[in-house]
Amino acid sequence: MTKNVLIVDDTRFIRTMLRDLLQSSGRYRIAAEATNGREAVDQYKSVAPDLVLMDIVMPEMDGIQATVEILREDPSATIVMCSAMGQEALVVEAIHAGAKDFILKPFTEERILTVLRKVLIPQAASPKGSSN
């Protein structure tokens, strides 16, 4: 059961790295990518991914605002924050806003896959299920 993922990060490099990593695991398909919070909200509406990997510091709209807006649209959205060190307070804020978990850069393959597996478990059992 492949899960559809929306990757949100303002750097092409991080998006590429995450894309490669998730695709090579065989469990995830990249449904869309967004370079800021505004795009993330729009993309979420159009592709309805199973999971969002969300950067925090971005132009236009930051990751926390985007998390709030996505959850307003879809309270069952699964969003995982992806942040560099020094953003701990913002991570907590994002979790309060409804993000399911977080990954700190430098991320390891193991850590990312573990977190994603973990946050997707309850969803697999819910009526919403996977989209694929």
Partner: peptide, 10 residues
Amino acid sequence: HSLKGMCAAM
């Protein structure tokens, strides 16, 4: 911050 995140990832 973007630079830092990228360097950390590398």
